[in-house]
Design a protein around this nucleic acid. Structure first.
Lengths: 259, 259
DNA sequence: CGGACCGGTTCATTATTCAAACCAACGGTT
DNA sequence: AACCGTTGGTTTGAATAATGAACCGGTCCG
């Protein structure tokens, strides 16, 4: 593992529930020597990628990311585009909508929109990492990924998050096959109890899957009419977002959506 | 220069007008060997910090920054806080307001807000890098920086951006002294013709300057009454933002603002 | 006081980076 | 076609930087 890889991988130990990390803890988490970690952090600190908190001298993510994220967004406005489409989609369905993107082997939520229509709604967190086997977005993404990647994901331990989580790789593969046919994935209570979500894949210019767009609703609200509405709107907006981002549906992807 | 520093400094060559950079160009910009640059970029690419565009194989900033910026913002919500204060400030003054933060020796705009009140307004860009000698934010920041940093900045060549740009280090030092007395910096047409801006410094918990908050208006609109309004509102909101971010004014900082 | 942490530093050993030359491929000229 | 100047990417001993075990000086706790 190269030095740069080591340094950057340190950053991945920060998450929502662990926003500051001390030197020794970072050394333990990464398995690297304390001196090495110190040097890497010091170098990253000089560039603003991490900074030290006043008290305790722990490290946290630095301000450089604000700048670089803004530049990334200026160069590739996926987030803005997603946000715009999600606003329409959540408005049309009255439910929470979100877009998650594939980064390597992790699926990260990059944008979401709520509808004010109902008092109850499914809530989302920014930059949340989704699992593949128990979210509709994960299933939609996986269904259009290459076989090796699917094997890789399904060979790992699959967390049983709720009583309804499906953890049998064979059954999941059967589900993926259905998703490929219909173009849409569903998940009922597999990630959070009482949440019924629909998701469709998003594609880039080479028709490779790059993420998914989803609508999440309380199961209590999922009547047949409501489900039909969600599916219709989701099909429409998924296609729209893929096109806005300069992508193309793969050959054979079913496209029965209403104009 | 350490390896990590080299790798991270490559990222700083991306900006708004140069969002993709090829291998050879990056080697030229950084002064590093092509082989080294290639290895560094490859490592960063594996972590999602850069990615290659389909055509031309050039590199651009990667998606990892969206995630890390969201986590940074979750840990230290400076941007959100700034945005909230700016909304009020631009509303109260009817002019464009913005906050810029000091990262090492560069001053970067992190948030801004427009007022819909007038048809003409000063426009801003996200993640824009400001110079110190010809912006009110730069002068406000510099006035409360330590002497060594001021010497460093003023010893560099000072760009004469407009006919009104002051480039004489001696006169700039005199201006900084005035800014320290009044707590507020002004700049008339030194950055953009016909823009009159006011700025005040922002401080952290150790009373070190961390950036500035500013109001920028067309010179044509700057009557005595309007200027008095802007100064009053700016004083109020600058103090408010410093406090919201957990900072304290340094001893002796003048505080004659209206409650 | 003694022990167990913490963040940070030292220095001989070891691995990486450097520079320069070299490939293969592409797009224009001649 | 031949040539030219590019591009991204790769290879080579010689120079340089990274590494990790031990070490320092704190602070907290009993």
């Amino acid at each position: 593992m190269g030095t740069v890889t080591k340094a950057l991988s340190l950053l991945s130990f920060f998450n929502r529930s662990r926003s500051t990390i001390g030197l020794s803890e970072m050394a333990r988490l990464s398995g690297l020597n304390k001196a090495t970690v110190h040097r890497l952090l010091t170098e990253m600190q000089a560039q603003g990628f991490v900074e030290q908190t006043g008290a305790g001298r722990e490290y946290r993510l630095g301000p450089a990311f604000l700048r670089l994220a803004a530049l990334r967004e200026a160069a590739v406005p996926t987030r803005d585009l997603a946000q715009a489409v999600l606003a329409d989609l959540s408005q049309a369905t009255g439910e929470t909508a979100h877009v998650s993107m594939l980064h390597g082997d992790t699926l990260v939520t990059v944008a979401y929109a709520y509808s004010p229509q109902h008092g109850t709604r499914v809530t989302m967190e920014d930059a949340e990492v989704l699992t593949f086997h128990n979210t509709s977005s994960g299933l939609a993404t996986l269904a259009f990924s290459e076989a090796g990647f699917v094997d890789e994901i399904l060979s790992r331990p699959l967390e049983k998050r709720t009583p309804h989580t499906e953890t049998d790789p064979g059954k999941i593969r059967a589900t993926l096959s259905d998703v490929r046919t219909s173009g849409m994935a569903q998940n009922i209570g597999g990630f959070e109890d009482d949440v019924h979500s629909h998701a469709m894949p998003l594609f880039d210019a080479q028709s490779h899957v790059i993420g998914a767009i989803a609508v999440a609703a309380p199961t209590a609200r999922m009547s047949r009419n409501h489900q039909a509405l969600i599916q219709r709107e989701l099909r429409h907006h998924a296609l729209r977002l893929t096109r806005l981002m300069g992508g193309f549906l793969p050959d054979g992807f079913q496209r029965e959506e209403a104009a």
